[in-house]
Every structure is written in C-alpha cells, then in structure tokens.
Amino acid sequence: MNYILKNENAVYYECGFSCDNELFIAFNNERYFITDARYTTEAKEQIKNAEVVEARNLYKAAREIIRKSGVKRIYYDPNDFSCADFSELSKLRIDWRKSVHLSWKKRVIKSEEEIALIKRSVELNAEAFDVFVKKLQECEGWSEKRLHFEAIAYLSRFGEYNLSFDPIFAIDENAAKPHALPSEKRLEKGDLVLFDAGIKYKRYCSDRTRTAFYGEGIQFGKEQRFSNPKIQKAYDVVQKAQERAIEAARSGMRAKDLDKVAREIIDKSEFKGAFVHSLGHGVGLDIHEMPFINARNEQILEDGMVFTIEPGIYIPGEFGIRIEDMVVLRNGRAEVL
C-alpha cells in the first residue's frame, strides 16, 4: 500500500521519530520523512529506515516526491488532514484514497516488544498510584484542584515521565461525571474518591482507575468499604462486572459481546442505565486507539490486542464509580497487565 501520514504517533510507529511539523510517505520500497530545518538534524540521527527531506513547504515537497515516483494512487487517513492540508495535497491530481484509521489498523496487534513497553508503563503507573495514595493520607481539606496538581507531580515523578492524559481526581458527586474537571470541592472524611490516571513509558501509554473510600486512611485496592450503603451496592456491582468481563474476554469474540457481559450485570441491578460509556478502548502510542470495546463494534478480538476494561456506574448529583485495568489477549484469554 502507498500511503501518506501526518499524525505524530503514526509517523513515530513507522520510523522511530516524529515532531510537530512532518509528513511521512511510503511507497514501493521508498520511505520519506519530510520536515523543516528545525528538526532535520535530530531526524537524521534517529531515523534509519527513511530518507529525511528538509523543506520549507512540506506539501510542495511531498507533491514533488510523489510526482517523480510515478505513483498514481495513495491512501491517507482523513482524520489526520485538515481541509486546508488536503487541498495542498490534492493539487497533485492522482487517485487519493481514504483509509480511515489507517495507522490504528496497522498497530492494533501489538508486538511482544510493544507489549513489554506497555507493561512497564502500567507497572510504573501502579507504583505512582501507591506513592500518591500515601500522600492523600495527609490531604484532608485540600481541593480537587490542588489534588489534581499534586497528582500530576507524583505521577510524572516530578517531571521524569510524561502523562498519558490529564488525570481525573473527583470527589462524591463530581465523580458522577466520567471526565470530571477539578473543582474547589474539598476532600473530607467519608468521601468517595475516583482517581483515573496514566503515564507514558518510551511513548507507550497506561491507563488505570480506582474508586476508594476516604476515611481514617485511604487505599487503592479493589476491596473497598463505604459508609453509604447505596454506594457500596454500586461499587460491588461494578467490581463484579469488571471481574466477569476480564474472565469472559476471549480471542475470537466480538468487541460488542464483551461490552455486553459487563453491561448486562449492571443493567440487571438497581443501577440499570447508569453505565454511560463503553467498556474499554485500545491503548498503545495513543491513549485511545483500536480496538474499541463498545456495544456497536463488530470487530473480532485477537491475541496481541491491548485494551482497558472499565465498567462504571454514575448517579448524577450523588456519586460515580469506575474500576479500570489494562489487559492483553494472550493464548486466547485476557492477561491483566
């Protein structure tokens, strides 16, 4: 397949380097990394499998390379190029073919090397959770905004690692918003805490969520005891849904059928309809990539796929609960990373 890429992670996957101004072209046995003078030295040092082309106008350089090659058809992902970008490309009148999620499809089955990098990212993230939860012991009265700031510091090891995404630290009713923004709400004894965070290791992401009771202390283990009976019931249902989904995950099943395993458990409880997002998503160089474990996805799950399993229950104005782990399919079954 002849193709052109712009997305940084897609380009990094192809050649081991990327920047914020680049194009990558692959056809026949030729591969080109096009960038401007700010990045050419570093690109030449790090890229071993593509020719580095320096250009002030990347699209003009790309058109010229393609024209000289004689290639008549090139695939591109329409998600990666703005209308303005594509208008520049299409000045060259060849057969431009859309291939939605072109790079994600190539990356959906992870190599053993990739799985090892992801596993290390998961381990480092879990260690950061353990350090941060000790800090929380002394944070009574602190606002979500302050705790969000502290979470970034502890997860990144004060700048050693980049984060997979902006962490979520939510208390009680704010946790009912799956992607809650930090507020001035203050942490008090008896509160529910939802913490969702991840770090990157050599560009590969991790993602983990724990929901916990803040009493005389706090711990991020999966066994939790809440003072509110309704919250405890909801937590037990979410925990059961997650455990069953992990047990049920198989290579060869449809993504939608795995989502159904967890969703049916929640919908058969008194919390029917309170699971408002998909069961999970793929994780790799991007924090959200294929496969998407939702009620509509017919994609067949295969060995080597890495994804989250994260059921939740959200009661607006009261509380939210989510438990999330990452798994890889190996030998037909899910292995928790």
Rank of each mutant, 00 (worst) to 15 (best):
Y204I: 01
L187C: 02
I218L: 04
G215W: 06
P182Q: 14
R186S: 09
A241V: 05
F149R: 05
Q242G: 12
Y235I: 13
T209F: 01
E140W: 10
R203D: 14
I152K: 13
R210D: 09
A175R: 15
F169V: 14
G141V: 08
I199M: 09
C205A: 14
N228V: 00
K200Q: 11
I231E: 10
L194W: 13
N162C: 09
F220P: 02
Y161G: 03
D196W: 06
I199K: 04
K185N: 15
E144A: 03
Y154C: 01
R244K: 14
T209M: 04
E150R: 02
D236P: 07
L192C: 05
I246K: 13
D236S: 07
Q232R: 00
S156R: 09
I199P: 02
E247V: 08
V237T: 14
S156Q: 03
R146E: 11
Y235G: 06
E140K: 10
K135Q: 03
Q137T: 00
S143N: 05
G190T: 03
V193H: 10
L155A: 14
K230R: 09
A234D: 10
A153R: 11
K222D: 01
G190N: 03
A170N: 03
H148Q: 08
P182H: 15
Q137M: 00
K230Y: 10
H148A: 06
E138N: 06
F226Y: 15
C205T: 10
N174K: 13
Y201P: 02
N228W: 00
E216H: 11
F169L: 11
A212Q: 00
I218V: 10
S164G: 13
E160N: 10
R186Y: 03
L187N: 02
N162T: 15
R146S: 07
L181Y: 14
E184C: 03
I168Q: 06
E144I: 02
S143D: 07
N162P: 03
N174R: 15
Q224G: 00
P178Q: 14
F226H: 10
G159K: 07
V193G: 08
Q239D: 13
P229S: 09
A234W: 12
F213Q: 05
P229H: 12
L187M: 04
W142I: 00
K177F: 15
K135V: 07
Y204A: 01
K135M: 05
I246A: 07
Y161L: 02
L192H: 08
K233C: 07
D166R: 12
A176H: 08
A153D: 07
K230P: 03
P182F: 15
D196L: 08
D207M: 04
F220L: 06
K222Q: 00
Q219I: 06
G221R: 03
F158N: 11
S143Q: 05
P178E: 14
Y235T: 12
T209C: 15
R157P: 02
R146H: 06
F220Q: 02
A151Q: 07
R203Y: 15
P167Y: 05
F213K: 06
A170P: 00
F220A: 01
T209S: 13
S156C: 08
P178I: 15
F165W: 02
A180Q: 11
Y214T: 02
A180M: 10
Y214H: 05
R244D: 01
H179D: 04
E243L: 09
L147H: 10
A245L: 06
A151G: 10
E223Y: 11
S183P: 01
Y201M: 01
I199V: 12
C205E: 04
D236C: 08
P178C: 10
D236E: 15
G141M: 00
E188W: 01
A175P: 05
N174L: 12
